[in-house]
Amino acid sequence: MTSHATEHSTGHDGHDHGHTETEGHGSFKEYLTGFILSVILTAIPFWLVMGDVISSPTGTALAVMLLAVVQIVVHMIYFLHMNSKSEGGWTMLALIFTIVIVAIAISGSLWVMYHLNTNMMPAMTEGMMKTMP
């Protein structure tokens, strides 16, 4: 009990002086790694689209999407210094919650609107438009 308590309090001493400061900014090496990875992950999709490297647009789109997701993860780790321990795991929890909401909002909107379009558009012929109130 006492050992636990002392461990706790030393952790808090760090908290007051340097915790937020030291945790937030990683090292020079970390930033450089993140930067180089980002440059590569940015250059590839631009090259794929501008150079017409992959003949099928669907394949290129998938590659661009995948590279964007990878680059977002790189930024999260090397620039935003995300990990499961900062702020007692609450930042990670908030992030996961946000990702779930974002996924529902974006995929849900696209899904619903796609079906609305496919179900409504063919029926909307010229004749129907005129007879509509």
Binding site: H25, P45, V49, P57, A68, I72, H75, M76, F79, L80
Partner: peptide, 29 residues
């Protein structure tokens, strides 16, 4: 400065989405 750091890097993360999904995928058609 720590708060602005988060804000600044966060905006860069959003820009990844913008250039990938708006510009590159837009040009792809």
């Amino acid at each position: 400065l720590m708060c602005l750091s988060l804000f600044w890097h966060f905006l860069d993360v959003i820009w990844i989405g913008v250039f990938s999904f708006v510009y590159l995928m837009g040009v792809l058609g």
